[in-house]
């Protein structure tokens, strides 16, 4: 991309993606809007802030950057970004989870060009990213692999195995982002499985780490700038976020600050979108 968009433009993009994610899950009658919303800034920055060198017209270009949504259930935010980036028409977003649509309940690389990994069974995305980073390095590409992981997902031992492997091979072309929204399916990560502080635990493996407010576009952008400048070790951005970020008052009114795996009823979706557009 030529001109770097402003923080304000990227913030507007993030909220646009949020509106799509809410509309499409409400239309589908199922899905994970709150898990999507916490990752809106990170996803918008990657797809529209000049970090992801991809070409929707040539989705298998070998030297493209890779984006893996390891917490695959948050795919509405990814599909929204892909549509806005031009992979498929924005109208198609409303076919989410419908029979015949490649915009499935979880990302499926066999059906949707631009999806880099089939996810939905948590814990595997970072290992796939390690493999892609190794493969791209072997082929001499100057590209980067980005992986977004859930904080609950960090309970999977495989993620920690991947952290060790990435450090061993000094994968300077790998950037992972933990969407630390403080919740997982059955409750807060504090009550289910608390593994914070992530940065303090991951840095000793040999990773470059940063901890930021992941719902602040300015902080996301500067963290990504810092991450892509590192080329001799893998980089981890611990993004402290809120589940349902952007529509927190709605979650409060509904009395559920996790709202895991629940689409908004149409009247609540309208309220949420009005809030985002205000």
């Amino acid at each position: 991309m030529s001109e770097k968009p402003s923080i304000e433009e990227l913030e507007a993009k993030a909220d646009l993606l949020r509106c799509h994610a809410i509309r499409m899950t409400t239309e589908a009658g199922s899905g994970h809007p709150s898990s999507s919303l916490s990752a809106a800034e990170v996803t918008a920055a990657l797809y529209f802030g000049g970090y992801l060198n991809v070409d929707p017209a040539n989705p298998t270009m070998p030297e493209r950057d890779r984006f893996i949504l390891s917490k695959g259930h948050a795919c509405p935010i990814l599909y929204a970004a892909m549509a806005e980036r031009g992979y498929f028409p924005v109208e198609d977003l409303m076919t989410l989870r419908k029979l015949g649509s490649p915009i499935e309940g979880h990302p499926n690389l066999r059906r949707l060009p631009g999806i880099e990994a089939s996810t939905g069974s948590l814990g595997q995305g970072l290992s796939i990213g390690v493999g892609q980073a190794l493969g791209c390095r072997m082929d001499g590409h100057a590209n980067r692999v980005f992986v977004v992981i859930g904080d609950g997902e960090m309970g999977e031992g495989q993620v920690w195995e991947a952290i060790a492997t990435a450090a061993k091979y000094k994968l300077g072309n790998l950037t992972a982002i933990i969407d630390q929204n403080g919740y997982q399916q059955t409750g807060s990560t504090k009550t289910v499985l608390d593994q914070t502080p992530f940065a303090d635990r991951i840095a000793p493996f040999g990773w470059h780490t940063q901890t930021i407010n992941g719902n602040s576009m300015a902080e996301v952008v500067s963290a990504l700038d810092a991450a892509v400048a590192v080329t001799d070790q893998p980089t981890m951005i611990v993004a402290e976020t809120k589940k349902g970020a952007g529509i927190i008052p709605i979650l409060e009114e509904l009395g559920d600050s996790n709202l895991h795996g629940q689409p908004l009823k149409p009247e609540w979706a309208e309220k949420a979108i009005a809030l985002l557009q205000s």
Binding site: S30, R97, T119
Partner: peptide, 8 residues
């Protein structure tokens, strides 16, 4: 299970 799709 339906909408959640094949990974689930």
């Amino acid at each position: 299970i339906g909408e959640d799709g094949p990974s689930q």
